[in-house]
Structure formats: structure tokens, C-alpha cells
Design a protein around this nucleic acid. Structure first.
Lengths: 218, 218
DNA sequence: CAACGAGTCGACACAGTGTCAACAAACCAG
DNA sequence: CTGGTTTGTTGACACTGTGTCGACTCGTTG
């Protein structure tokens, strides 16, 4: 799933310690700078020059590490998604034992992970408007979630706790999109947006109502 | 509600017929060109120069009519929203007599209006990532819809057909956001997206389930 | 006819992007 | 230790797009 352009040519394993800061360090410095700057202003207002200076190199040196400023954001997103992937397993397990708590835990996980990287999420969203690669990356992430949710819904239906209704995949798509949209609105401080304190309640109410046909399964 | 920067200085009423094309005509020509070009490529790839040439003037003359290319899109959106506003009244009326059909009609209206201006919708969405004014305009549009839906939900609850549950405004916010997101995915041909033929069915199922507590009110 | 204002244009300054040839410093093979 | 290779780094350059300005045209109006 890792995007093809996330890293520059510096991919071999090296462990030296040289006088000048080595490639990997620079690469990390650039990413770090990006995360920092994105907390202050939108991606559109961050120039390659700013990124380079922040990492202590010249603008042209930047291009040695990344093909463009967008690629830095994509690398960052890639990393975030990998983190998220790890926590996923445990949540799925919980669903079998206690559905209500399980779904809620999923939403909370989602909320926690993205909430703690608001600036990055926003940059990724902004980028998707302009950049084909960003769009593709985000698409594949969404696809992954939809697939997971579809599977979970189908499992619940087979267990007999959830009634048949909308095609599971359609329902999953809509719910994942709802989450994405609603959480983004909150994180970016758009308006209208759900009240942040009640957001998880609101969303899980909608998820449960539509999946189980009522606000809580029997 | 009309955005403050939608039009250039040419705002007085004039009705002359001059040798060279007059201001209003040019203004319209620019907007028309914008709509045409946006059908071919995203806003980011449309330059002021292209807009100007399309309208038969030089790039610098363009600035006489609009302060920036973004302002053209905002003017277009403004116009679209005004159109939409007109059809709204009749739908609200229907809700009282037949709720299910009424909600469905709302969704269909939404779908029809925005579906027939996909390129513009996309440009507006793209712009929101970059442009503060665009964000503000879209926000106010969303606010309007949320207010309408909130009111409709409350009316249904007072009539006793819909049960109390989530705060009406929260529910309305989530549903409007769901619609926005899901329809945009379809129109922009993102993936994942709802199957277009079933989109209205899917959405109305979710609306009805969450508003009435079951897929159909008694 | 003179003054005015709407409309137009070319030239300019500016900001940002991406590329390139050339240079520097460490590393490694002989 | 020496000379070639790899890894980094740089300034200069070409290019694209934006927005501004002063000067010009040409109907309109007093």
C-alpha cells in the first residue's frame, strides 16, 4: 500500500556516522519540519523553500530527498496509516463479544488517531483537491476501511443480530464517508460541525441505527 | 447571502448598446468560459489567461471584472445556490402530507441540482481547500441546509411521527454532511462511491432509519 | 469640444517550481 | 595512499502564473 513516491533515492540500509548529517537524518528532518509547519499554516502556504530551510538545507538539496513538497505529505500519511493499521486488529476482535462496544471502539480509535494528527489530515485533504497521487492514496485508504466495515456488517448479519437491508457494501461506504466528512469538519473547525463532545455518540447512534435497524441490537 | 466579492466594480444598471462588447456581456462571457473549461479540467489547471482568452480579452482586462479566478467560481456557485433555493419551498410543503416521499424528494432535488453542475461543484470543493472565501461561502450554504433539515426533523417529532433521540441539529448536521460527501464522491467519480443508480435509495434509507428510528415511519 | 469614465492593453515585478552542471566530502578497491 | 565512485550540496537558470500600473482608446455627457 505504501505509495511509490514516498521516498527519494536514499533507500539502502546505511549505518555510518559522517561529518555532515546523513541522508536519513535529513529526510526525517524534512518530514518533521513539514509536520511542524503544517500546524501553523495550510499546505498551500508552505513552500519547498520553507521545508528545506527548516531542515537546514538549500531548496535545491530538497529535491534530492523528495520529488516535490506533496510527496513529503504523502510519506507522512503513509506512516500514519501504518500506525493505524496496527491498532485495527484488536478492535475487530472485540466486535464478536460485544457489538455495541465494538463499533463504538472502532469509532473512538478512528477519532483518536486522526484527532492527534489534525494538521496532517487537513493537508492530505487539501492535497486531494489538487494532486492525483494524493487522491489515489486517500482512495485506497478509504477502500480499505470500506472493505473492513462491509465484512463486519456481513458477519453481524450472518450471526443473525443484524437484519438484511441495504447491500452491506453500500451501507459501509456511506458510513465511512459520513465518518470522514464529519470528523474532518470537526478537526478543521469548519462549520457546521458536530459538537466535538457528542461526536462519537452521534456517529455511533447513526451506525447502530442503520446497521441493526434500531439504535441498539437485541 | 451573496458573497461580497462575487462581482467586480461593474454593478450599476446599464442598458446601452455600444460598439465594443459591454461590461455585462464580458462578465457573462468570462463566467461561461469558466463553466466550459471546468468541464474539461480541474480549477487548478485553468489559468486566468485561459479565462480571459476564452472571453476574448487580455489577461489584464480580466482583472477589471473579477479580482481573481477564484472569484469567478464563487460567482457561479452563488448563482447556482439561488436557483436551488427556489425549488426548496415546494419540497418542504410535501413533507407534511407524505413524509417518506417528501424526504426522498428532497434528496432527489439535491441530487438533480448538483448532478447537473458536477464540474462546478468539484471546482467549489477544490477551492475550499485553498481559499478562505470559498470555505466561508460553502459553510454558509451548509449551515442553511442544516437549519432547514433541523427544522423539518423537529416538526416531525412534534407531530409525533418521529421519536426523540439525538439532538435534531446534530442529526441534521451528520445527514447533510453524509449527503455532501457521498454525492461528491459520485460526481467526481471517486472511489469508493455509492453505486449511482442506488444512491438515492441508500441515502434515503439512512435518513429514514435515523430520523424515524426505523426504515419507514408508521 | 472637452472632460469623464468604462474598458483595454503591454510591460513589469514578483513568487514559486523544477532542472542542471559543477563542486565537496566521505567511502572503498586496488 | 590514491584515485574512482557514491552521496550530498549548491547557485544559476528557465519557466509558469499572478497581480499591478500607467498609458491609451473611445463612446457619452455637459
Amino acid at each position: 500500500m505504501t505509495s511509490s513516491l514516498e521516498t527519494g533515492p536514499t533507500r539502502s540500509v546505511r549505518g555510518r556516522r559522517t561529518a555532515r548529517a546523513s541522508g536519513d537524518e535529513r529526510e526525517r528532518a524534512i518530514m518533521q519540519t513539514a509536520e511542524r509547519l503544517l500546524q501553523e499554516r495550510p499546505i498551500g502556504e508552505v513552500s519547498v523553500d520553507a521545508l528545506a530551510r527548516g531542515a537546514g538545507i538549500s531548496r535545491s538539496a530538497f529535491y534530492f530527498y523528495f520529488p516535490s513538497k506533496d510527496a513529503v505529505v504523502l510519506a507522512l500519511v503513509d506512516r500514519l496509516v501504518e500506525e493505524a493499521e496496527l491498532s485495527k486488529e484488536q478492535v475487530i476482535a472485540q466486535l464478536a463479544s460485544d457489538p455495541v462496544a465494538g463499533w463504538r471502539a472502532s469509532l473512538e480509535l478512528f477519532y483518536a488517531i486522526f484527532g492527534s494528527h489534525r494538521a496532517l489530515i487537513r493537508a492530505a485533504a487539501d492535497l486531494s483537491a489538487v494532486n492525483e497521487d494524493a487522491r489515489a492514496l486517500w482512495s485506497s485508504i478509504m477502500e480499505g476501511w470500506v472493505a473492513d466495515v462491509t465484512e463486519m456488517i456481513e458477519a453481524e448479519r450472518e450471526r443473525g443480530v443484524a437484519p438484511a437491508g441495504l447491500p452491506a457494501r453500500d451501507l459501509a461506504t456511506a458510513l465511512v464517508q459520513l465518518n470522514e466528512r464529519a470528523l474532518r469538519a470537526i478537526f478543521v473547525e469548519e462549520s457546521p460541525a458536530l459538537a466535538e463532545e457528542r461526536a462519537i455518540d452521534t456517529l455511533s447512534h447513526i451506525w447502530l441505527s442503520t446497521i441493526y435497524g434500531s439504535p441498539a441490537p437485541r
